[in-house]
């Protein structure tokens, strides 16, 4: 039986969105692309949005427990990856709260907080992926490729959000640059997706994995090829920045949902 679970799809998608966005939003801040003016304005909204994402993600993960109200027990073995997920999520949540508080007060988020938050995001992504890497019962997941899969997905989602933000603030000058970044992220994700497919195809599984041809086509078409084309056309200047960025984000999110569906369908236990 494939391990398809809505709360896990929601959780992993939102964690990807949250961490990826934080990292790339921080990098965006470092890049100097956003003006002094737009930066605090957008930060306020972004931090709120990310807090909501993280909150919903944690709620989703708590609801999948058999005993939701015993969730505090999940920290009794801090060495376990489930507890680690909780710890790193809380850490990221604290950072987001601080950032949100600062922006709420009209202050700029210090770069050091972006740096720390970026590291925590990476840590959270790592432990989230390790949850699957350590799932020996699911040969499709229990592999180092899953780590790359997690980071690639978060990167693409983060880039897509920041791309949308950048055009939101009419950063015309940055449009071409962001399009190239987006294009790069898509290509990275194409490589990651290929690596995962190769792992499924040639890894020693001991189980028969289900065929996901239809989902694969949707995932490739909507989630990888379409964004690549959009970003390329935007880079060429053939489509407007705003519509390019928003359609890029939409395609990426839909694609990543399909990607997760495929991933969880491969969850066939030994």
């Amino acid at each position: 039986m494939a391990e398809i679970n809505l709360s896990l799809i929601v959780f992993t998608l939102l964690i990807g969105l949250c961490t990826g966005t934080f990292i790339f939003y921080g990098l965006w801040q470092f890049s100097g692309i956003p003006s002094e003016e737009t930066s605090p304005k957008s930060s306020h909204r972004v931090m709120l949005l990310l807090l909501i994402f993280l909150g919903v993600a944690l709620l989703a993960s708590a609801t999948h427990l058999g005993k939701t109200f015993r969730f505090l027990n999940a920290f009794r073995n801090p060495g376990s990856m489930i507890a680690q997920e909780g710890i790193w999520s809380i850490a990221l949540g604290v950072i987001l709260l601080i950032a949100f508080f600062l922006t709420f007060k009209g202050q700029k988020v210090p770069k050091v907080l972006y740096a720390v938050g970026g590291l925590v995001s990476c840590g959270l992504l790592l432990v989230c992926s390790l949850v699957y890497v350590r799932a020996l019962g699911f040969p499709a997941w229990s592999n180092g490729v899953t780590i790359v899969y997690y980071f690639g997905s978060a990167a693409l989602l983060g880039v897509a959000v920041v791309y949308a933000l950048s055009v939101q603030h009419a950063e015309k000058a940055a449009g071409k640059m962001m399009a190239s970044v987006a294009l790069t992220a898509v290509f990275v994700q194409i490589v990651v997706t290929l690596a995962f497919a190769l792992h499924l195809q040639f890894g020693v599984m001991y189980v028969n994995l289900p065929s996901t041809v239809v989902l694969d086509i949707l995932r490739w078409g909507i989630g990888l090829l379409a964004p690549a084309i959009i970003a390329y056309l935007a880079w060429l200047g053939k489509i407007k920045g705003k519509s390019a960025a928003w359609s890029f984000l939409t395609c990426v999110i839909v694609g990543e949902v399909f990607s997760r569906l495929i991933f969880f369908m491969q969850g066939v236990h030994l």
């Binding site: 058999g66 005993k67 027990n73 999940a74 799932a135 019962g137 236990h269 030994l270």
Partner: peptide, 16 residues
């Protein structure tokens, strides 16, 4: 009485 029913033990157990 302690278990939270996360079922992660099923995932990690190669023997299901």
């Amino acid at each position: 009485e302690v278990c939270i029913g996360c079922q992660y033990c099923v995932w990690v157990c190669p023997y299901n």
